[in-house]
């Protein structure tokens, strides 16, 4: 009886002092929950990689790398991904800046339009590119024909002779680059828009009070300040270009030794029943992708995070 009275008295005293002490539940279950979900996804990725690695051997990979078609495929993949990434950055940085800093009529609709390459099925992108280049006429001439005419004229102006090789976009290496660029650029634009959204415009405004026009404020202040975003956008565009398959299949074809990239090599190897070869090519892609993505994270230098988990 007296014990209960004591407790009640203590509670009353605490209440009168405005103190309400309660036991706060531990944070451990929450952190464990986060770690569990994270681990599940990491396990899925690692599982796929380990399964692939188990299915192949260094000998298979070595043999695959000696195949001249695969060597050509690696070369074209690296070249086309590099060019598609550079083109994506050239378009994404100013586009992201425009969308982040300016208001203009129709902005919402145009912003939504930029997501079309992300939303559309890859095969549809390839088909759309094919129709654009062959069935869309400007002065009764298709875009493909315009490209050939312009290239021939420029080549003649520079070399003084007509090109002695087949010129064109579709089913050639430029089609690979264009197909990769069409999709990867949309991801780069989204990244750059977010980057500039997160940057205060104050630095650019200060630069303008010091004598800069908008162009100088952009090049001298905004672009250097956005370097991490540019690297992330580049990495995303590159990774997207490396994994591109559908648009390349439709727009560039998958001709061995001509328009073959690593993603289509996997398809070609499977189509001829060479599963070991397909897995070996996949492992080459994984190695290339991991090297580039680790390098990008190393350059970025940020680890992020605020709290330590012990």
């Amino acid at each position: 009886m007296s014990k209960t009275t004591d407790t009640v008295d203590k509670l009353k005293l605490n209440d009168s002092l405005g103190i309400r002490l309660r036991k706060v539940p531990s944070d451990k279950p929450f952190i464990a929950g986060l770690a569990f979900i994270f681990s599940l996804y990491i396990l899925l990725i690692l599982g796929m990689l380990v399964a692939d690695a188990n299915y192949t051997s260094f000998e298979d990979i070595g043999k695959t790398l000696q195949n001249p078609n695969i060597q050509y495929s690696v070369k074209i993949t690296l070249l086309s991904c590099f060019i598609a990434t550079i083109l994506s950055i050239i378009v994404a940085v100013p586009t992201g800046y425009l969308l982040s800093r300016f208001r203009f009529p129709g902005k919402t609709a145009l912003d939504a339009l930029l997501d079309i390459p992300i939303i559309l099925p890859p095969l549809v992108i390839g088909l759309s590119l094919l129709i654009l280049f062959h069935k869309f006429y400007i002065f009764d001439t298709s875009i493909e024909e315009w490209c050939v005419i312009i290239f021939n004229k420029v080549y003649y102006l520079i070399k003084g002779v007509k090109p002695d090789f087949s010129v064109g976009v579709t089913y050639k290496v430029p089609a690979i680059i264009l197909a990769q660029f069409s999709v990867s650029c949309a991801f780069a634009v989204r990244t750059m828009r977010n980057t500039f959204d997160q940057m205060s415009p104050r630095q650019e405004q200060v630069a303008m009070t010091l004598g800069c026009n908008r162009s100088q404020a952009f090049w001298l202040i905004a672009v250097p300040a956005a370097w991490r975003g540019i690297i992330t956008a580049g990495a995303l565009a590159w990774a997207r270009a490396l994994g591109e398959f559908g648009p390349i299949l439709i727009f560039a074809g998958t001709t061995r030794g001509r328009t073959e990239v690593l993603s289509t090599s996997v398809f070609l190897e499977i189509s001829i029943g060479n599963l070991e070869g397909a897995v070996a090519v996949s492992m080459i892609m994984v190695a290339i992708a991991l090297s580039v993505l680790f390098l990008v994270r190393f350059i970025d230098g940020r680890k992020g995070g605020i709290y330590d988990i012990h």
């Binding site: 205060s200 104050r202 630095q203 405004q205 200060v206 630069a207 303008m208 009070t209 010091l210 004598g211 800069c212 026009n213 202040i221 250097p224 300040a225 370097w227």
Partner: peptide, 20 residues
């Protein structure tokens, strides 16, 4: 007139130094 043509110095609240 544009900011560049006003001959003013501006010290914003967040200082806005150029990190690079």
């Amino acid at each position: 007139k544009r900011p560049a043509e006003r001959n003013i110095g501006f010290l914003p609240q967040d200082i806005a130094l150029f990190d690079h």
